[in-house]
């Protein structure tokens, strides 16, 4: 298991966003999380990548506990220094790309490996060029983010995340800010990563993509996992009424 999230609880004030959520991700697995807005999908991803703290439950990466619930029922994280190790396990690709506008494409990808992981500049740049080649945008290495299309920017963001060599890569609606044409080129890259057995969790509204690429689909609603399983079962033969109702919208 790369990641296990057990009995995760999260609330914002009075609002319960995640209610006793448990799921695990095996090495090489591609999991799609689908569901309506406000169902807690993004929050779950943000908890897994430590952008949000959980209020209960446990987060285990590579068999090591990053957070657990103590006897008083409070979520406890490992000390700050140890946290850095857990952050290295996971990467995140945002809906809005969040590239650094003042850095060239190459520097966007190499800066963190050089200054966080202390990789040599030559090695970081060689690795970045290889990743850009894979993303089909090697010619953009010296451009700045504003000069790129949304689809190209998102591919840079994927390269930036991959440059940190994470064990698992999370995508938070990676194509929601893109038009259909650009969506295609980003999905192609994710599909290619899936073929290379990159472990990934993708929150998405692209149902055909989720069906074609993922090994497992989680349908979330109201802060719980309503249904999960093989994509063919969940999409073609959903068991829960709520799942059927949600998927019907996409058939039209």
């Amino acid at each position: 298991m790369i990641l296990e999230m057990n009995n995760i609880e999260k609330h914002f004030g009075e609002l319960e966003v995640l209610k006793d959520i448990s799921f695990g991700v095996d090495s090489g697995e591609v999991i799609s999380i689908i569901g309506p807005s406000g169902s807690g999908k993004s929050t779950l991803l943000r908890c897994a990548t430590f952008l949000e703290t959980i209020d209960g439950g446990e987060i285990i990466y590579m068999g090591e506990k990053a957070a657990h619930t103590d006897e008083n029922g409070n979520a406890v994280y490992v000390p700050h220094q140890e946290m850095r190790k857990f952050r290295r396990y996971c990467g995140l690709v945002f809906q809005q790309f969040n590239l650094f506008p003042h850095y060239s494409i190459l520097k966007n990808i190499t800066d963190a490996p050089i200054h966080v992981q202390h990789v040599s500049q030559e090695e970081a740049e060689a690795n970045a060029m290889e990743l850009l080649g894979k993303m089909g945008i090697a010619d953009k290495a010296n451009a700045y983010p504003y000069q790129l299309s949304g689809g190209q920017q998102q591919r840079v963001a994927i390269a930036r995340a991959l440059a940190m060599k994470p064990e698992i890569l999370f995508f938070d609606e990676p194509t929601s800010a893109l038009d259909p044409e650009l969506t295609g080129e980003v999905l192609k890259v994710i599909r290619q990563l899936a073929e290379e057995k990159m472990t990934m969790v993708v929150v998405t509204h692209e149902m055909p993509f989720a069906k074609a690429v993922s090994n497992r689909v989680l349908f979330m609603d109201g802060g719980v996992i309503v249904e999960q399983g093989d994509p063919r079962d969940v999409f073609d033969n959903p068991q829960e009424e709520r799942t059927k109702q949600f998927l019907r919208v996409f058939e039209r």
């Binding site: 990548t49 952050r87 945002f94 809005q96 969040n98 800066d111 963190a112 966080v116 992981q117 940190m164």
Partner: peptide, 30 residues
Amino acid sequence: IPVGQYEAAEVLGYTKTQTFMKIILPQVIK
């Protein structure tokens, strides 16, 4: 500065000081 800049830096493992000096401050100056 959009909150996404801080989040991207955090996920990449930058320290708070690095985030401010390398990512936030240059954009603020402009």
